[in-house]
């Protein structure tokens, strides 16, 4: 069985803090990490490798330093890795991102399963997985938290939704987006990295020409949406802090609540 896992390098937004005075983001010193859902996708892929000798390839599109997330994937136990890097890929919306990743997967060619994270913690759209499935004409399951089994060319999964959960059977090849799995993803290990490094082709680097893409379908030029502006979320009311001892503050508060006809 051959599995492709798509992983994205993201800034660790859980570390991001607001500047108390200006209300702007402080991003200095924020680490780059493997997107959390993608680590979970890697874990599910590597469990299949443990169980049935699947061959796992990690693929990432990003600037040259995104090679770090692929090293981490190899350290976790992936067999091969591909970095898609080219100035022409920059500024892609999810339409152009799914074209780029879709073409890279077509070039890899031989695969049974594609695993993505459900959502990246920077762009936050959760659109890339389903758009790649559509590009490749594959069935999809989003928000998968467990792979029950792979048998006779079919995969059975459970996935969460707003109402509860579903069990689905998909004929392979298929695409899954992964989130909230029940086990913690494994840590990268030096030994794995060295093993992977021994093989010549551990991390391949492909550009636009390698995946047979025209610049007009990539990056900002190939995108259908544009970011027009970004700003910090506004906090719109200035809180009035009540003063006095506890009974006084409470009585003033309840007075205001009554005035606003809330009781």
């Amino acid at each position: 069985m051959k599995i492709v896992v798509l992983i994205k390098q993201v800034p660790d937004t859980t570390e991001v803090k607001l500047d108390k005075k200006t209300g702007n983001l402080i991003r200095e010193g924020v680490d780059s990490i493997v997107n959390p859902d993608d680590r979970q996708a890697l874990e599910l892929a590597l469990q299949l490798k443990d169980d049935c000798q699947a061959m796992v390839t990690a693929v990432s599109m990003g600037p040259p330093q995104a090679v770090d997330v692929l090293s981490e994937a190899l350290g976790m136990g992936c067999d091969a890795a591909v970095l898609l890097t080219d100035r022409a890929f920059a500024g892609a919306d999810t339409w152009a991102t799914s074209t780029t990743l879709g073409k890279a997967i077509e070039k890899i060619g031989d695969f049974d399963l594609i695993l993505c994270g459900y959502q990246a913690i920077d762009g936050d759209t959760a659109q890339t997985g389903p758009q790649i499935a559509e590009y490749l004409g594959l069935p999809q399951a989003c928000y998968v938290d467990n792979i029950e089994n792979v048998e006779a060319g079919k995969i059975t999964v459970t996935r969460r939704n707003d109402e509860g959960y579903e069990r689905l059977s998909l004929t392979l090849p298929a695409l899954l987006t992964v989130s909230k799995i029940t086990v913690a993803p494994r840590y990268p290990m030096m030994g794995n990295l060295i093993d992977a490094g021994c093989e010549d082709a551990a991390i391949q680097i492909w550009n636009a020409v390698d995946i047979g893409a025209l610049n007009s379908e990539l990056g900002m030029e190939g995108s259908l949406t544009q970011v027009v502006k970004t700003f910090s979320p506004k906090t719109k009311r200035a809180g009035e802090l009540l003063e006095g001892d506890v009974p006084e503050m409470v009585s003033e508060l309840l007075g205001k609540v009554r005035q606003a006809h809330l009781i």
């Binding site: 999810t94 936050d124 659109q127 997985g129 389903p130 499935a133 969460r160 995108s223 259908l224």
Partner: peptide, 23 residues
Amino acid sequence: ATSRGRELAPRLARRLKAGLTAD
């Protein structure tokens, strides 16, 4: 942007060759 909407909309947008903004 329900669980259904967030998996259907991107697939649909790709089919329609249309841009999509999330959530």
